[in-house]
Design a protein around this nucleic acid. Sequence first.
DNA 1: TTGACAACTGACTGATTAGTCATTAGTATA
DNA 2: TATACTAATGACTAATCAGTCAGTTGTCAA
Lengths: 277, 277
Amino acid sequence: MSKKQLILETAAQLFATKGIDATSVQQITDACGISKGAFYLSFKSKDELIISIIDYFVKDVATRIDQSVNEGKSPEQKLYNYYYQIFSIIQEHITLASVFFKEHTQFLSEELIQKMALYDTMMNKLIENLLLELYPQSAQHIYDLAIIIKGFISGYSEHMFQKANAYPYDLQALSKSLVEKTTIIATHAKTPFITKEMITLHSTEEALITLENILQEANILHSYLDDGLLQDSVTIITEQLQSSQPRAAIMHGMLANLQTNPVCNWFCYLVKKHIEN
Amino acid sequence: MSKKQLILETAAQLFATKGIDATSVQQITDACGISKGAFYLSFKSKDELIISIIDYFVKDVATRIDQSVNEGKSPEQKLYNYYYQIFSIIQEHITLASVFFKEHTQFLSEELIQKMALYDTMMNKLIENLLLELYPQSAQHIYDLAIIIKGFISGYSEHMFQKANAYPYDLQALSKSLVEKTTIIATHAKTPFITKEMITLHSTEEALITLENILQEANILHSYLDDGLLQDSVTIITEQLQSSQPRAAIMHGMLANLQTNPVCNWFCYLVKKHIEN
DNA sequence: TTGACAACTGACTGATTAGTCATTAGTATA
DNA sequence: TATACTAATGACTAATCAGTCAGTTGTCAA
């Protein structure tokens, strides 16, 4: 393997595990067993390396997909090959792809990752309950449907990103069209792909609505407020929640106070859900 | 607005336009009209700020979606509200979202962006031709179908990322299942969303297969090779392409030489397409 | 063996940036 | 007005890192 290719592939590996900005040229050359100077004989700059890596993998992907599709005997088999080849490539480059397609993961703290997982679970539950309600006869499809719905959103939102300046999207028409498509799939699909074993055990939504978490959220909210009245309202809510007999009228009033400021929405939402239970 | 909230929202704006790493604390405080010290009275570190921003927006999104779904009178309307609310949020935070969901855009050179657009066009054309072949009766749906296919891929691949360690995916079953779902939508969908005016004019695939571009690719490939025989093969191909009468036997032999090394795939692919025309 | 040339090295430079802290400005109270 | 306290400042430090270049090593032809 040429030195240039060695650097490129080693760097791709490091970028995939540590992130791009967190990987210094020194670390790349160390991993290659060469000096820093040698690096600059192959690439003019770190930027050029990054661009080369992207270019390198995009070419590989494009070639393989095109070839694979052309090998299909029938149109249907071509479509099959297209899907199959793309997922094979993703599986092969899974770590690298995850960095280039969602670079942000690197600096998420362990705590935030857990929190995000909770939010995600919450949203999944929401959509799954909705699907069960809508298509009770397609219960075995709801995990596939949930993924497909997310896929719809991702596909059309990426299209929105690209056209951000051109046309204002007619969101009502889009939403209507996606409801139609969701229903079509729910009523006609035969073979679900996601099986029960493949589903992560859901961490319960309740983890978000513990007294402990609400008190923590109260602290966070407090630090965002500068209005003394609102700050006191938050404090009073925490006092009431911790007392043996929270008084409904006080809670109601305090929530009314907070509802004037959108920053408080999340906190109010949690408190209300907590009261309901 | 409290100082903390001011910093958070200003920083979110700056991150959205310049990227996270490229935005220094100094720039944030300048934009807020406060000193650097004041920043550290509100946030312990830049990392805490980043985490707070994510947390802040995730909470906002989760609250709004949940509320909006609950307002739906029927299950179907709830699904509609779900789609509608998500797209509204995306449209509202479009720049911020694009940074957090695909941070890499910041360091892409203008040249590479154009190249990527070409690759993208190439892949779109591939899938659009395929769809026309498969569903000639659904011609007015192919742009929606192309987006949906990308959405399927994005949805299931994200699921793969999460389960990377758990189960090896059965890619054949997945591909089969997606062919089925694609066909279901193609045959049953009534109202396309993407209209003709919304489609960007395609830059032609030919831009990739010009002699000029192939010569440039020859240079790139050359720099990745250390085997003299392969390097010479590349050189000979460029000579032949520039001569008035390229000799088929030579081209064929040189391509055979190169085909032994996967690094040459893309170059071979371009040269073959060029010869075909 | 010598000389010429290319490949390679790693200490060094200059620029940038996160985070600190001694000092100052502002404000409320007595 | 004097005092006490908090909020805010910005020059400074320490660390990192991309990129350079004077010098070294390896190679091959004469």
